[in-house]
Write a protein that binds this DNA or RNA. Structure first.
Lengths: 191, 191
DNA sequence: GGTTGTCTACCGACTAGTTGGTCTGGAGTC
DNA sequence: GACTCCAGACCAACTAGTCGGTAGACAACC
């Protein structure tokens, strides 16, 4: 199912989307990066939208898995939130995947094919849902505090992370700036 | 200097960038929207980067003017910040220009021509500077409070606004959601 | 008061290159 | 021999950008 070429195309597409967005990468870019013909990409992903959908679908799964791993590994609610934010800080620091592709695609939303829009929305819903789960648990146990409900608190935290990503990107990949900006949103919940 | 056609091209480019970003609009789009030939656009703006630079430069001026107007009209520091956030809430509600073009371009930053990158960075610097000015004044007078310095506080607020814009766009232009997400960042300063 | 020259504003037709996508066909495998 | 995987050549449509040329405004000159 997931052959090597298939995965490498997906990897390449993902890193191109992270740096350029949906509209500024082409089949030729991927073909050159992976070292295959353009037709090979079409073989695995009939259209550009299919490719993007596959990238986000995998990204969504990775997010769900990652949040699940945090839930399993970390027991304290405040540390779970710190792990989420810390993950992105590390990504920016390593210049690995220094931007959430869903956030990037969200900004381009009005110019995206409907299937892609659907995936982006689904990712946001999922992410908010998982974080709200962490926060809800923390509020019940008294480990966290917030004047708002868990869902709103999660949205505020995510917005802070996305805004901080933008700021870090403008500052040339400044992970320390990202950390500085996201800290208040964390402190607001962790006290 | 600034003829009618010139301004209309600029207007059209700006609204196209707001909805689609830099890479997903073309000279043909603008030509069709304005009702002129493509060559006319090239006459006023030799290259696509020149056009984008002109759009952002005008946007920067409008931002500086707008912040100046707030400073002149509103005396209380907390109300100045509310005016800034409220401006964007209104833009989203009216579906007028429901996204900051600099924030949108910032997400595409790695794929942008250097002249455009420069303008985007300059806008961020200017915006942070003006807001930090408001906050600094408020901190001195005791109208605002913050554990951080004015510059960091301004960055946190801007990140919150940009993150909330993304959330509102994903939610289909939900101005109430934008307001709900930005409120904590305001409350943090206004108490 | 014509004539000439120069300027800006604009257009239709063009270019070279790129876009996503299709077609045919070959190599390897089960 | 059917199937998956892949490449090369190709396509129409589109991209930013260029070309020569036109229409009008303004001025200078004789």
């Amino acid at each position: 199912m997931a052959t090597d070429t298939y995965t490498r195309i997906l990897d390449s597409a993902q890193s191109l989307i992270v740096t350029r967005g949906y509209n500024a990468f082409s089949y030729a870019d991927i073909a050159a990066a992976v070292g295959v013909g353009k037709a090979t990409i079409h073989h695995h992903f009939p259209g550009k939208a299919d490719l993007a959908v596959a990238v986000i679908a995998r990204y969504r799964q990775a997010t769900v898995d990652g949040m699940g791993a945090i839930a399993a590994r970390v027991t304290q609610a405040d540390m779970r939130l710190r792990a989420y934010v810390g993950f992105w800080e590390q990504c920016i620091r390593d210049d690995n995947a220094p931007f959430c592709i869903a956030a990037l695609l969200a900004s381009e939303l009005p110019s995206l094919p409907p299937e892609v829009v659907e995936q982006v929305k689904a990712h946001f819903d999922e992410l908010i849902d998982r974080l709200a789960g962490f926060i809800d648990e923390g509020l019940r146990s008294g480990a966290l505090k917030s004047p708002d409900n868990a869902e709103t608190s999660a949205r505020v935290l995510v917005a802070s992370v996305h805004g901080a990503m933008l700021a870090a990107r403008v500052a040339g990949g400044d992970a320390a700036l990202f950390s500085r900006i996201t800290q208040p949103a964390l402190q607001r919940l962790t006290g």
